[in-house]
Amino acid sequence: MKTFFNTIGNLFRKPVTTKYPFEPTFKPDDYRGLIGFEESLCIWCRRCEAVCPPGAIVFSQDMEGKQTYHFNRAVCIYCGECVRACPREGALFQTAEPAPCALKAENINNGWNKLFDEAIESRERYAAEKKKKAAEKAAADKAAAEAKKTMEGDEGMNPGNN
């Protein structure tokens, strides 16, 4: 009998489900959403890139040594590990905004893999260039030092000139 009245009552009860895209669903204030980046505060230590479990952050570097931050919202798992690892408060932060869907035109997977490899390569290129320059500089310094030494030696060899 109780079941019967329940069934009749169910005809007039409101549905439990919500009309999701038109009505908001439950969302806590500190939802784990998109990772934000504040370039002016970044100290370019690349610690976030080192700790990121899926590898969703990568820094590329041009030949002048300027680094650029790249972030892939489709690879990111929103764990917040980069925010915890960041030594500079406010440079990386987690917003409560969910990530938008990836579109086909973005080519988010293959494009990202390519970008990731290129970024690593650009850094290596910069490091190699820097090393080369450092070596050249060291060689030049050494040559200069040797020249100086020779000059000093020459001076030392003729003390009686004065």
Binding site: F26, K27, R32
Partner: peptide
């Protein structure tokens, strides 16, 4: 599920425990 989302920030993959303690 909603309580888990409120505590961990996500409904399914909580990522709550990390080595050394908890994340949030």
């Amino acid at each position: 599920m909603e309580l888990l989302e409120a505590v961990c920030g996500n409904r399914i993959q909580y990522d709550f425990s990390i080595v050394g303690g908890v994340a949030r």
